[in-house]
Design a protein around this nucleic acid. Sequence first.
RNA 1: GCGAUUAUGGUGAAGUGGUUAACACAUCUGGCUGUGAACCAGACACGCGUCGGUUCGAUUCCGAUUAAUCGCCCCA
Length: 427
Amino acid sequence: MANYQVQRGTYDAYYEDAYYIHEIEDLLGTIAQTYAFSEIVTPIYEQTELFARSAGEGSDIVTKEMFSFTDRGGRNITMRPELTAGVIRAVVTNKLYANSDLPLKLYYCGPAFRYERPQKGRYRQFTQFGVECVGVNSYLNDVEVITLGYRALMELGFPHVILKINSLGNKESRQKYMTALREYFANHIENMCDDCKHRFGTNVLRILDCKDPDDQKIIQDAPKIEDYLDQESKDYFDKVKAMLDEDQIPYEVDETLVRGLDYYSHVVFEYHFITEDGTSLGAIAAGGHYDNLVKEIGGPELSSVGLAIGIERVFTLLKQIAPERFSKLTVPVYLAHIGEEAIDHTYLLMQHLRNDGMIECDMTFENKNLSAQIKIANRKGAKLLIIVGEDEMKKYAYQVKNLEEKTQEVVEYDKLIDYINNLEIEY
RNA sequence: GCGAUUAUGGUGAAGUGGUUAACACAUCUGGCUGUGAACCAGACACGCGUCGGUUCGAUUCCGAUUAAUCGCCCCA
């Protein structure tokens, strides 16, 4: 007999987990809607080329983390490693920019795939929620997205969130800065760690993130992005910061924040959360401004700003800091029958409650004795137990027992739904 | 892709180179066929992640493999 197991880096969600993950996604969707973003659903796979172009040929995502395959028609296919590229592709394919008021404000939620070493809050199939604002015409678009992310995390129940922001400047500023960095590190790279040597070739900016203490000393004296931003880039960043201040969104500027995707420019940001016992899952959400992606993918020149939230990371952390929020799911009303003859009658009564009263209820179809049924009701967390026996069937009036207060009274068939609704049971 | 730790039932877990793999919780049955407790008597791993090896014999030793967790890389 084959012994199947869940694939590495994937997981099954059921019962409370499935329910609350959905609740988190719904809440995020609602918040995005209040910011006037509308949902977009795009395919889970796209042609490989799309991701190779958008994420950057040299990025780790492209070089070693993609789930790629050739389909039966010989096409090169990749399971999306992130959703932005697909969303922008959809915008271009459907020419959404042509007949809508800009900017386009879209949100998405769905699975993404990266072939990585799994860790806590980090899976090979994971869920991203995010927003994209395509065709920005004001620094306020950036502010709006950053704020949306911050408010969303607060709304989800994080007691505090560290928002880090930085500016990579426009394309020219960024180019100049990267050249300066390359020149600077060229003289030091010999003495730096292997990872940095690798980054030197692929993405110099990433060297700034290095945690090696010896490298840190070298990095401290490296050119600062601030000095390479041209006036336009500086003004842009200043205006963003000023408005965040105005709107009382706390942030800290982190000059080493560069992000891994090649398409970012101007403002980039990350949201971090550290629990009291020091657990950090890295960024729980992150995003940035990008100027060239739409054009790169075949559309007009449109600047955009976007943000992605890692659902699994959010859920893992929230469960750790506020487990009481994710309480056991219950069935509020349970029906019990006495004697085999009462089962069918009870079933019809249950259907009446469900269909005419939208009352969540359940019963067993087995002929069990009453105490066994009470036990099941308790296990399911029922607040109310309706007992159907010989007498009750004759009179169409039932014993309704409040399992918490241990009280009991007789309620007639016609009044049952109102009776239950008036109790205002908390689900 | 690199390094480290771990792996026993539905759950928490103890344990040993050799007859029946503790204990607890949960679950099921009966004592108790109209009311949630307690109690009593039973049941519940033909198996110790998987596959090989050493051995007269392995869950226990060795190897490989798979998975989880942690660190790195990277990222949500």
